[in-house]
Design a protein around this nucleic acid. Structure first.
Lengths: 193, 193
DNA sequence: GCTAAAAAGCTAACCGAATTAGCCTCAGGC
DNA sequence: GCCTGAGGCTAATTCGGTTAGCTTTTTAGC
């Protein structure tokens, strides 16, 4: 019997891919083992259990989202940066709904959990993008929270099939980006919200 | 042995309450049975199984959200209506995170699923509120989707503990409502987005 | 009031998925 | 060519959901 050559990273990657296919809530150790051509208990040589697997997928996902947003924003500013970053995130959630769900469900296990810096990377990218709008400093946190709420909400609703199909969702997304951009322009330093 | 006097509605209500306490993902038939002072299999006389229970909780939750928003908007218009409706929804999610999660996870089982009219009630309230802003007709759907995204995203992020505590979340929420209101005012009929 | 039947509870048993224990073997270093 | 440990396996346990089938309460009709 030749070995399968698994590693924690390989198991995590396969688990993430499987979650995207069947849905995060349908992910099971048995299904993943089958996918990897191995018996279920063998997975425990690489991950501590289902909770550990889910957490590793979450860390992977959040870091991937962070990468995608950073790359999209790179070299752009203002509306361009907002639109590119938002589209990158939306694209990611549509392409990888399972691992994004894992990322949402995860809670840090402690102060040195790698999930924490991963989340911070995402927030740092958004903060950098917003910085281009030159908001009053005390409004940046509010704008950041609104942006997160908006994009997270849109992406999850869309990925969950919660939008009816009477109007093009792409159009709605573009409209939303415009709305956000114009509103942020109004909040340039000195104006009240 | 006296009877417990359960009904499908009573089981659903208890399940919803339990989901709020322990989290929707931690809800189990065994735990609910214990809470109701009954053995697990007895629950199957009232609900078809865990999936059916989750679905009933979802319908209950969406209808409760619809009620809350309708009541909050009642007699108000413009920014008042927006703020009141949004706060009502936020309050609901904070008070009932478990059943709200059930509502999000649910998918209609068919065209005559009671979940469908429940969701429509929510959308109808938001649409009525937005109507007060006199947007161009072809923009209403986009504004509705943005509003849903925003409020759903904010509520779930807050309920999930995803906002750090460096700034008051209430302030962020108010700021967001102002942002939405001012943006919508800009889109009064005739102006492009 | 008596009885039949439906409703609502129970116990026992089954099933599937996660997990644990313990064995066996392949791969690589001496 | 052995020795060791990592990585695979089978077998067994546990737990939660579910089903089967029995018992008892309630209720309707007489």
């Amino acid at each position: 019997m030749p070995r399968a050559g698994l590693t924690p990273a390989a198991v995590t990657a396969a688990g993430a891919a499987l979650a995207d296919e069947v849905g995060f809530d349908q992910l099971s150790m048995g299904l993943l083992a089958e996918r990897l051509g191995v018996r279920t208990p063998s997975l425990y040589k690489h991950v501590a259990g289902q909770a550990d697997l889910a957490h590793r997928i979450a860390v992977l996902a959040v870091n991937e989202v962070a990468d995608a947003i950073r790359d999209a924003i790179q070299g752009r500013a203002g509306r361009d940066a907002l639109a590119a970053g938002a589209q990158a995130m939306r694209r990611y959630v549509l392409d990888h709904p399972g691992r994004y769900a894992a990322g949402n469900a995860a809670r840090p296990n402690g102060p040195d959990d790698p999930l924490v810096p991963a989340v911070e990377r995402v927030l740092a990218s958004w903060a950098a993008m917003l910085h281009g709008y030159r908001l009053a400093p005390d409004q940046e946190i509010h704008a950041l929270r609104m942006l997160r709420s908006n994009l997270h909400g849109f992406a999850t609703l869309e990925a969950g099939g919660n939008f009816q199909f009477d109007a093009d969702v792409d159009d709605s997304f573009t409209w939303m980006i415009d709305f956000l951009d114009q509103g942020l322009e109004k909040h340039v330093e000195g104006r009240s919200g």
